[in-house]
């Protein structure tokens, strides 16, 4: 059971990483990075590491995404077209 979930989530994570580095749309790359953190925290929990899972959930999918978005806003100030 655990191995099925880990395999499926791992494949989805690899696809998300591929999307994050290959896409031209920066916002899509940020969202894909958020997906990677999300699934990574589930996988850490399955490997019996709740501390790491909580850190990944709080920092990886919450704070890092938002700091990326703030940075995107700072470098795109005044440029109103995506």
């Amino acid at each position: 059971m655990i191995s099925i979930i880990i395999t499926v989530l791992g494949v989805v994570m690899i696809l998300a990483a591929f999307l994050a580095i290959r896409t031209k749309n920066l916002l899509a790359a940020i969202i894909s990075a958020g997906v990677i953190s999300l699934l990574a925290s589930v996988i850490y929990l399955m490997l019996a590491a709740p501390d790491v899972a909580m850190t990944e959930a709080a920092i990886g999918s919450g704070l890092t995404t938002i700091i990326f978005i703030f940075t995107l806003k700072k470098i795109r100030k005044g440029d109103l077209n995506d």
């Binding site: 501390d51 899972a53 909580m54 850190t55 709080a58 919450g62 704070l63 938002i66």
Partner: peptide
């Protein structure tokens, strides 16, 4: 709750601090 219960449940100072930051965010 997270950082005061660091010795009982998963999590601790860093995770609790990030939660507080998220509230201000």
């Amino acid at each position: 709750y997270i950082f005061t219960h660091g010795h009982l449940t998963p999590g601790g100072g860093f995770q609790g601090g990030v939660l507080i930051t998220t509230a201000f965010l």
